[in-house]
Design a protein around this nucleic acid. Sequence first.
DNA 1: TTCTAAATGCTTGGGGATAC
DNA 2: GTATCCCCAAGCATTTAGAA
Length: 381
Amino acid sequence: MYAQIAVNAPVKNTFDYHIPPELDGRLKPGHLVQVAFGTAQQHGIVVGISDHSDIEQTKPVLARLDPRPVVTEQQIELAYWMSERYLAPLSACLWLMLPPGITGGRDIRVTLLDEDYQTNDELEQDLIALLKRRGPLVGKQLSTAKALQGRDWRKAVEALAKADVVESVRVLNPPRVRPKKVKTVALAIRPDNIHAVARHLGKQSRRADLLEVIAASPDDAMLVDDALRLSGVAKGTLNRLAAEGHITLHDGKPQYVTLKTPPESVDEVLMQLRDGYKYLRILERLAYAREPMPIKDLYAETRCNLSDLRKLEDEGLIFFSESEVWRDSLAARDFVPTIAPALTPEQEAVWSVIEADMKWRAWSTPPPTPPRTQGGGNTPP
DNA sequence: TTCTAAATGCTTGGGGATAC
DNA sequence: GTATCCCCAAGCATTTAGAA
C-alpha cells in the first residue's frame, strides 16, 4: 500500500511513500507522519491511500506521529480547492489549518562514535567529554550546555563528523503542542461513608482520642485507668476534658468516668476537637460533584489548599488525577447578525459588474476537483 | 515565529500560634 | 518546653497573551 503525502516543505506536489508492515492498516488520510525527504526528515500529512504507485522505488513512511488524524477529509478537500484556486502548494494550504506547534521543528542529534579520539582543539575536547558524559545530544541541548559555554559547537561537530568521531543525524523534534490538562481531585470512598470517617478527620487531638475511647465503652461508667491506658493520654488531658464539660469524673477508688456529651453529639465534639470541619466540607463537596473536580474550583469553593488535599489523599479518602480541557475562545461571546450598510450609487455600480462576472465564472467553470498526484506520483528529492 | 511580560501554580523555609 | 499546624513570602517553573 502507498500513501500520498503532502510534506511540510515549500514544494507543489505530493509524494508517494510505501506503507511499512508495522503501519499497514493504521494510516488514513489526515494522519501526521514522519518521512525521509531529501537528505533529512520531514513532517507530512497523508492525503490519500492507494494500492499502487507509478514510482518504481518509494521510501517508507517512517512513523505515524499521532494516532488521531490532524485534519479531516473535508479539510483536505478544502486544501485541494485552495491550492488549485490560488495556485499555492497543497502542503502550504494544509498547514494553514494546523496550530504552529504541531510540528516541533528540526534539529540534529549528535552521537559519539569514537570515545578514544585525541584532539588538540579545546572545543572538540569539551564536546567529546560532554557526549561521553551525557550520551547522544540534540542541537538544542548542545546550545544550552554549560560545558560548551555558548561557543559555536556546529563547526566542531562538522569536523568530528568528517573524522567519523561523531555521527550527526538530522531529526525532527516532537510536537510542542499538547492537550491542556488540569489537575482534578475526586472522592476515593463511597459518599455514604463520609460521615463514618468524619470523626477522624483533622489534626491529632489527645482529648478527642480519650473522648472516643470513653464513648466507645459498652458500659455507662469506665475505669479512669482503663480510659487512660486505652487512649494513651495523660491525666491532665482527662482533667481538661472534664473541665470542658464533655465527661464527668466520679470520686472514689477506683475512680470512674462517664460521658457527659450526649452520644448523638460525640461525632460533632470529636470534629471540633480535631478541627475536622474543613476536611468534611471538602469531602462533601466532592461527593456532590460526583466526578473528578478541577482542583482550582475546589480551592475557591472550600477555601482549602494543597496540603489539606494531600492529607486527605494520604488517608486514602481522595485521589488526584488529570483531565483534558477544551478551550473555546468564542464560547462566551454572543454574535448578533448585522445588516450590511447600503452601498453608495458608485459602489453599487462597481459591485453589479463584479457580481455579474462572478456568476458567469461560476456557471462556465466547473468546480476544481482534488487532483491526482502529478503524473501518478514522483520521487522525493 | 520569537521574545517578553504578566499571571499562575507549586515548593520551600521561616516564624508565629496552638495543643499537649 | 516541644511538636505540630498554619500562614505567608520568596523563588522558581510554566503558561498565556501580546507585540514585533
